[in-house]
């Protein structure tokens, strides 16, 4: 469930297809995931999960997999 919600944000923010290979979603490697997009991604995740991420979480969020693990800590 968390993974689906996180992926929905990735799709919306990066404007990628819904069948995108999630294993290829890495910061500064995927063509849509640069520093500006990263902040938009963080804002999107914070809105989706109604939370505020720590600076460390933002800086460490370098892949889709890590993003899912991070957001699992923000689910009530």
């Amino acid at each position: 469930m968390v993974e689906q919600r996180v992926f929905k944000v990735f799709v919306e923010v990066f404007d990628i297809p819904t069948d995108e290979d999630k294993s290829k979603l890495h910061y500064n490697e995927h063509p849509k995931w640069d520093s500006l997009a990263h902040m938009a991604l963080v804002a999107g995740l914070e809105t989706e999960f109604d939370c505020m991420l720590d600076m460390d979480e933002i800086l460490d969020m370098s892949s889709f997999e890590i993003a899912v693990k991070t957001m699992e800590n923000h689910v009530d």
Partner: peptide, 10 residues
């Protein structure tokens, strides 16, 4: 500005 800008963006 670092801490609050994302909240301001909403």
């Amino acid at each position: 500005m670092q801490a609050f800008s994302r909240l301001l963006a909403r």
